[in-house]
């Protein structure tokens, strides 16, 4: 199973669920919901946070946060 952290630049994926219950609530509040399509836009250098396009807005997540999102 892939996570949002494994998306390549410009690649899109559909959220299927969360692997971390601590983060799932906050992610959902930010619009990351199962069934939602997200797109990986760019990342900060040195394995820094990543920027995703979610519902037309840019959401930046740390890698461990992106890893909590399972995608299809």
């Amino acid at each position: 199973m892939r996570t949002a952290a494994q998306l390549r630049h410009g690649e899109r994926g559909t959220v299927t669920g969360f692997s971390n219950s601590e983060m799932s609530l906050k992610l959902m509040e930010m619009g990351v919901l199962p069934g939602q399509e997200i797109e990986f836009k760019f990342a900060a250098p040195f394995n820094g946070p990543r920027c995703f396009l979610v519902r037309g807005y840019q959401l930046s997540l740390r890698i461990n946060e992106a890893e909590a999102i399972s995608i299809d």
């Binding site: 983060m23 807005y57 930046s60 997540l61 740390r62």
Partner: peptide
């Protein structure tokens, strides 16, 4: 304690 980053990059 858990620390979140999750931040909007506004236009």
């Amino acid at each position: 304690e858990k620390s979140y980053f999750m931040m909007e990059l506004p236009i």
